[in-house]
Simulated scan of single mutants.
Amino acid sequence: MLRLPETLRGAFKEPLGPVYVETDALLADAGDPIVAVGDVVTYHLRVAGRDPDVSVLDGRTKREAVSEEIAAVLAGGNPRIEVENPPATLSADMLDALREAIDRDENVVIHVTGEEDLATLPAIVAAPDGASVVYGQPDEGMVLVPVTPETRAEARDLVGRMDGDVEAAFDRLEQR
Rank of each mutant, 00 (worst) to 15 (best):
G141R: 13
T7N: 09
G130C: 02
T7P: 01
G136C: 03
I34L: 05
R99C: 07
E14R: 15
A97L: 01
A28V: 02
G77S: 08
L45V: 06
A169N: 07
D39E: 07
D93S: 15
V47W: 09
D117S: 14
A88E: 15
N107Y: 03
P18C: 04
T151E: 07
G130Y: 03
G38T: 08
D129T: 14
V41M: 06
V166C: 08
D129L: 12
G76R: 15
L144Q: 09
G17I: 03
P79K: 09
L95E: 01
V41D: 12
N85T: 14
G164M: 04
V66F: 11
D32G: 10
K62M: 13
I102G: 04
I110C: 07
V133L: 09
E6G: 06
H44W: 06
V21A: 07
N78S: 13
D58S: 08
F170L: 13
D117H: 15
E14C: 02
A71S: 14
D58H: 10
A97V: 02
K13S: 13
L57R: 01
G164H: 07
V109T: 13
Q175V: 11
P128S: 01
R63L: 11
G49W: 09
Y43W: 12
A36V: 11
A92H: 00
G136D: 08
I102L: 13
L45Q: 14
I70R: 09
D93R: 14
R9D: 01
E6Y: 05
D117R: 12
L74G: 03
R3M: 00
M1Y: 05
D165M: 02
D39F: 05
V125C: 04
G164A: 06
D39K: 02
R161P: 08
Q175N: 07
E106F: 06
R50L: 06
E84W: 00
D139I: 01
D53P: 02
F170H: 11
Y20I: 03
V73E: 11
K62G: 14
A65W: 02
P52E: 12
A25M: 09
E116T: 12
P33G: 05
A72R: 15
T148A: 05
L57W: 00
D165E: 13
T89K: 05
P79N: 13
R176Y: 11
T148R: 06
L4P: 05
V166K: 09
T42M: 04
T42S: 15
D105T: 12
L2Q: 00
G59P: 05
G136H: 04
R80A: 13
V41Q: 07
L26H: 09
D53C: 00
I81M: 10
V145Y: 06
R63D: 10
D24Q: 12
V35Q: 01
Y43I: 03
V134I: 14
N85C: 15
R46T: 10
L90F: 00
P33F: 04
D53S: 10
L158F: 07
A131P: 06
V66D: 05
F170V: 10
D96A: 14
R161K: 15
